[in-house]
Design a protein around this nucleic acid. Structure first.
Lengths: 236, 236
DNA sequence: ATATCTAAAAATCTCGAAAATTCGTTGACA
DNA sequence: TGTCAACGAATTTTCGAGATTTTTAGATAT
């Protein structure tokens, strides 16, 4: 009754929790794209992918199709798959859309959240704080950890929003944002205190100050775009 | 250089414009789900699907994965695929989310739209009107036509919105709405003049009356939900 | 009756090779 | 020198069988 017994000996998925090779391949490729290991625009040839991820063509094809659905991969009929391109324009557009949706979800979440929600939220913030501390001392191997906990915190903020569809939309946009964050912020910005931003949003949410929390969250979302714009389009 | 020469003799895709069997299968299954031909909750067994759509398991799997990405199909690891369930609650949630996004997209579209946009919009409205007329005389075989032109009209309304992501989100939600509309409104409601609703939105958009257009569009989106709620949860 | 186990049946998942298409090079011709 | 067709190589797409897992049904025991 091993958790991965579903998969024959010699081809266990490398990803914990994966119950099939498709899911394992999907998770790994997804990680490598968010990571930048598979660079934007890269042609994804099946021979290369088979060698790298050790699964068959059909399995890869299914994993890639899933990533196309998340706009992390693009496909052109009979011409294969590519890692989705990135651009500052796209990130600006993405950020606006994400603000619209995440702020509305946060508003509803604060209005509906109960004590249990607060508990989970405080816990997520705590775990995020811990990894932020360690990351500040310069430990780049914690990058994955940070992103996971950052995601958990932001998800926890809107967890009490009763709209499944709003949360679904948010998930799509958040993942895209995560990609831009990871691709661009390998070098972190000294002028920014992310922890303080998170703390401010948390406090406003716990105080049930809807307008303040939403304003802070919107500013928080905007911040990465502003820093990136400054770096890649410096008018000075 | 036939348009479908990509596919071997004996297995041409049944769908015009499809350049691969995966795409043809995807389009056909998608249609059958929106249609209700494949009922909500139905278990999608590969043997049944292979017989019905005439393609191999891997091909089907890829088509279904694509539909999972659009939330028209659900999947559980090692337990196959099912047609996504429907519920009044889900439709209510969906409608609220769609209002948020479609109204914002419409607002931006009206602000950015130029003469070319107006032209396409007026054309789409005209084509929609024509099929509405014919449909009113009772011609149920025009259902597909109506849905296509209705979709074209709504897409044309927001076409000038500069945000790709907002339009992407809208597309997902609109498709879901289309499913509910088709599943429930086979019997059309006499008390509703859809044509008048569309005309009112069009006029407000052309008059660049942003607030009015958005209000009318929101009411238009709400209307189907209201009628459905009344029918399936009648308190009288 | 209910629960537990086991084997057979049914279904899903995966692979590798064949089929189909696109890409890239060569050579004929203007 | 430039264009284009033809041909071979590279790549994508598809299939169907076999491996793996889940489900069903029957038998046994509590």
């Amino acid at each position: 009754m091993d958790k991965n017994s579903a998969v024959a000996a010699g081809r266990q998925p490398k990803v914990v929790g994966a119950r099939s090779l498709v899911e394992a391949a999907y998770a790994t490729i997804r990680h490598d794209i968010l990571d930048g290991t598979l660079a934007p625009g890269l042609k994804l040839r099946f021979e290369m992918l088979r060698e790298r991820y050790g699964v068959g063509a059909s399995t890869l094809r299914e994993a890639l199709t899933r990533l196309v659905g998340e706009s992390l991969v693009t496909s052109e009929e009979q011409r294969g798959f590519r890692v989705a391109e990135v651009s500052l324009d796209d990130f600006a557009d993405l950020t606006r859309a994400r603000k619209l949706i995440e702020v509305e979800a946060l508003r509803q979440s604060i209005l509906h959240g109960d004590d249990a929600w607060e508990g989970v939220l405080v816990g997520a913030f705590h775990r995020l704080s811990k990894v932020e501390e360690k990351l500040a001392t310069g430990a780049p191997e914690l990058r994955d950890d940070f992103e996971e906990r950052n995601r958990d915190f932001h998800y926890a903020l809107i967890a009490a929003c009763p709209s499944r569809w709003l949360k679904h939309m948010h998930g799509i946009l958040f993942q895209q944002s995560e990609r831009y964050r990871r691709l661009s912020l390998a070098a972190k910005d000294e002028s920014r205190d992310v922890h303080a931003e998170h703390k401010a949003v948390l406090d406003a949410a716990l105080a049930r100050d809807v307008d303040l929390a939403c304003r802070l969250e919107a500013e928080h979302i905007d911040k990465t775009l502003q820093l990136l714009s400054r770096r890649f389009a410096p008018k000075t």
